[in-house]
Every structure is written in C-alpha cells, then in structure tokens.
Design a binder for these strands. Structure first.
Length: 445
RNA sequence: UCCGACAUAGCUCAGCGGUAGAGCGGGUGACUGUUAAUCACUAGGUCGUAGGUUCGAAUCCUACUGUCGGAGCCA
C-alpha cells in the first residue's frame, strides 16, 4: 500500500506492506520510531519497530535516505501528530544511505538542492511541487477534453519559425545539415496548430518548447512546457474567455486535488497562497485594452523607470503596476499596437480607417507576481491582408505557403494562445523560481 | 546581452589586515511513546581560481570562473 492509501484508511488493518525511504529515526532501548515517505503524498507513515522482530538488526543502518520495505499491522496511533501508525512485524533494508547522503533532516536552500536534481524529489518541497505538476498536467488535458478539443502533437523538430517567439536552437548531426535544410527545436506549435485547427476545429498542444534566449531571470527557462490551444470560428473575445476559464479551472483543480501540498506551500513559501487562490477562484478577472492600460499608467502619478507612451511595449514595471497595484487581480490587456506585434495577428478596423493608432487583436493575461502567464491573439484570416503583413515584416510569403494556403482554401476566423505551464505552476504553488518547478531545469550559462 | 551582489566546514552563515568560528548535520555515548526529540562528548576547512599590494591577506586591489538577483526579450 502507498502512504497515501494507508493514511486515508478508515479502519485498522491486520497486515500491510509499505516500501519507502527513511526520513528520520528515533531510537529507544526496546524499539525505534521510523518516519517513512514513499512519495505518494507529503505525509510520512510512522512505523514502530520493536527490537526482536525479523530484520531489526538492520535498524542502525536505517539512516535518513535509506530504503526499506516494512510489513506489519496498521493501528490507531496514541501519538498526537498522526492518526495511524504501522507496528512492524518484519523489516527489510533495501538500500543504505551512508553519511555522504546530502539531504539532512533540516531544511536546505533551493540553490543547494538545484545541484542535486536527482535527489531533491525526496524533499518535502520538491515532492509536493512534482506531485502538483502531475495533477495540473492532467487537469490541462481534462479542461480541453471536456470542451471537445483534440490533443494534437505538433513537431518538436521544425523548419518553421514563429516570428516574435524568440531565438531558436539549431539542430545538426555533427557538421551535417541532416534534413537538407536548416532545422530547429520548436519555439511554438502555433503555426502547425493553426493548420490542424482549420480541419479539426478546436485543438490544443501541450509539450516542450525551446528558446535560445539568453534570459537570466526567475521566469525563463531554455526548455519549458507550453499549452497552446487553437480554435476555429473564434474571435479575440472567445479567446480571452477561454484563457480566463483555463486559468480558473486550474486554480479550482489545484485547490480541490492538491490540498495537502498546497497547505505545505502556504506554510513554508507563501502564507497568503491558499487565501489568494480561493478568492481568485470566485472572482472574474479584469480586462482592459492596451490604450486604456496606457491611460491608467499615465494617470497613476507613479514614477516609472521607463516612460509610458502609446506604441511601445509595456515594461515589466508597468505590467506589475497594473496587476499588482491597480487591479490587484489577474488582468488581460488586449488590442495592442500593430507595429510591436508579429505578422500573423489579426488587424483591427482601426488599421483601415486612417487612425494613427492601429491595433491588432492580441492579448496578454498578466498575473500578480509573475507577469505574463498567457499570450495570444486572433489570427489574420484574410489572405490579401496576411500577404501584405508578411511583406511588411520582410518575410517571404512563399516560405509560409502552408500557412497562407489556409487563407486561400476555406478560410475561417480563428484564435489561440500559449500558456506557460511552469509559470502557471509558480502561480499555483508560490514557488518563486522557474528552476524549481522543472525536474531538470535547463537555463543559459 | 547589460547592471548589481555573493563565493569560508556536508548544509546555513559569522569573521572584513595579525595565523579559522557558530548553529545544524555526521560520529560516539546517555535517555525517552518519540514527533525535523533531548543531553554530553567528538571529528571536519590550502576561506572559488590565478595574480598583485603588504612585515603579514579569508579580510584590500585586478582578472577569471561559478551562483544569485534585476533589466531587456518572452510563456
């Protein structure tokens, strides 16, 4: 049985077996207490091993980190801190952990634990993080599957670029151009996702993404996971609603299915985590146009390091002000200036009526503490306008033939977004560094 | 890529010109239905690397390497 099953039991048991790793041991003359963790849940199972049981002579070797298999009976515990405890009938040492074992009973810093990624999942913090990662990964699929979306697998090795998504890693086989043309690790499944949506209707991808950006921050990794839905017959409004529902769904899922691990984060990482998530789960997010956001910033009277000016990108400090100080809740900013966005975003009417502030149907969902969680847009479905936009960005329409063909044959309005999975996990757990929500984080040197 | 901080025992850190310290962890022993138990004793370090200044450098200076934080870019 797993620790999770054992601790959830509502009756005593004459005989059960658990395998796990020793977290700590306390000896008496006649018996020993062992705290066993098997990764199934945060809590340990307390084992009482009386001297004289088969295998008891191995107890001195049951130090922190050693692995054991224990059989015994489950009884109510007279102690204060646990409902059940296991009275061992026999005990088998599987593997020792000598005094070079780097994990101690007391806490370690995140920096040190990053140097031992192969062992850090044995700590409370990382065990909790990776359990939540698993649950939320499942919840992503459930959210889209419930809504009739098809999960598609877009390529990881690709020859297409997704403009605006950042630098790419080049793939070669030694010196050889293995595929006869330059190939790269994907920076986004969006372009392929669009082609699949214009056939399957509603699709999503969920997989690894690679960016060769030399970003050295707590929010960037070279290899990260992205959730990218693409919906045919959808406009920006529908896209924003889907994105907000997506985030709400994952918050609710975490609160319901990861309660024990969230309580741990709430205690040790962020004392307001559960209160904040609970409140957010019941509150609609805010929306403002880019133009309104600029007005809010200009009227805020706040001194920013970077000037606020219509037509430039919102800086981190601007985004932080909007979501953390002004709205104090997640906020979606939409309808960005055309000139700062990539070619594929749908041009709004103000691009054609002579306005000096032309915009495209783009949106970013910003959350307190993290900033951009989601970036998306309605895509340009009008062939001539798309061709013109490609040329305006100095791109060759021929190189995007598969993409422009979608507009030539049975074009439909469609929209999608990318959700940074690790950033979502940071938001849900209170973990402040992206390196600590990835099992093997890859960041630039 | 730019700006800044830091690098001392297994871990967390103190020491900031006069010959290396604490807590935790480890080891040994005692004690106890205990809860990251408690008490006593004990072993651990060319102070990131390479130069320089000085009678003397963990301490001051330079370079390099690494880590962390911030910015830009984005998810």
């Amino acid at each position: 049985m797993t620790a999770k099953q054992i601790l959830a039991s509502d009756t005593a048991h004459p005989e059960i077996t658990i395998g796990g790793w020793v977290r700590t041991r306390r000896d008496s003359k006649q018996f020993s207490f062992l705290e066993i963790n098997d990764g199934s849940c945060l809590a340990n199972v307390q084992v009482i091993a009386d001297s004289g049981i088969p295998g008891y002579d191995a107890v001195p070797q049951l130090t922190t980190g050693a692995s054991v298999e224990i059989t015994g009976k489950l009884v109510e515990s007279p102690g204060k801190n646990q409902k059940w405890e296991l009275h061992a009938a026999s005990l088998k040492l599987l593997g020792t952990a000598d005094d070079s074992y780097p994990l101690q009973k007391k806490g370690h810093g995140a920096e040190f634990l990053r140097t031992i990624p192969h062992l850090r999942s044995r700590t409370n913090l990382f065990g909790a993080v990776f359990r939540v990662r698993s649950k939320i990964s499942f919840a992503v699929h459930q959210f889209f599957q419930e809504r009739g979306f098809h999960h598609v697998h877009t390529p990881i090795i690709t020859t297409s670029d997704c403009e605006g998504a950042g630098e790419m890693f080049r793939i070669t086989a030694g010196e050889e151009e293995f595929f006869g043309a330059p190939a790269y690790l994907t920076v986004s499944g969006q372009l392929e996702g669009e082609t699949l949506a214009c056939g399957l209707g509603s699709i999503y991808t969920f997989g690894p993404t690679f960016r060769a950006e030399n970003s050295h921050t707590t929010r960037h990794a070279s290899e990260f996971w992205m959730v990218e839905p693409e919906v045919a017959f959808a406009d920006l409004e529908a896209d924003m609603t889907l994105a907000e529902d997506n985030v709400h769904y994952l918050i609710d899922y975490a609160l319901e299915h990861c309660a024990e691990d969230l309580a741990f984060f709430n205690k040790f990482l962020d004392k307001s985590l559960i209160e904040r998530l609970t409140k957010l789960s019941k509150t609609p997010f805010q929306r403002v146009t880019y133009t309104e956001a600029v007005d809010i910033l200009l009227k805020s009277g706040k001194k920013f390091d970077y000037p606020v000016e219509w037509g430039t990108n919102l800086q981190s400090e601007h985004e932080r002000f909007l979501t953390e100080e002004h709205f104090k809740t997640p906020v979606t900013v939409y309808n960005y200036p055309k000139k700062i966005k990539p070619f594929y975003m749908r041009q709004n009417d103000d691009c054609f009526d002579g306005s000096d502030r032309p915009t495209v149907a783009a949106m970013d969902l910003l959350v307190p503490g993290i900033g951009e969680l989601i970036g998306g847009s309605q895509r340009e479905e009008r062939g001539e306008i798309l061709d013109e936009a490609l040329r305006a960005h100095d791109l060759d329409p021929e190189a995007y033939k598969g993409y422009t063909d979608l507009r030539r044959y049975g074009t439909v309005p469609h929209a999608g977004y990318g959700l940074g999975f690790e950033r979502m996990l940071m938001f849900l757990t209170g973990v402040s560094n992206i390196r600590d929500v990835l099992p093997y984080p890859r960041t630039p040197a």
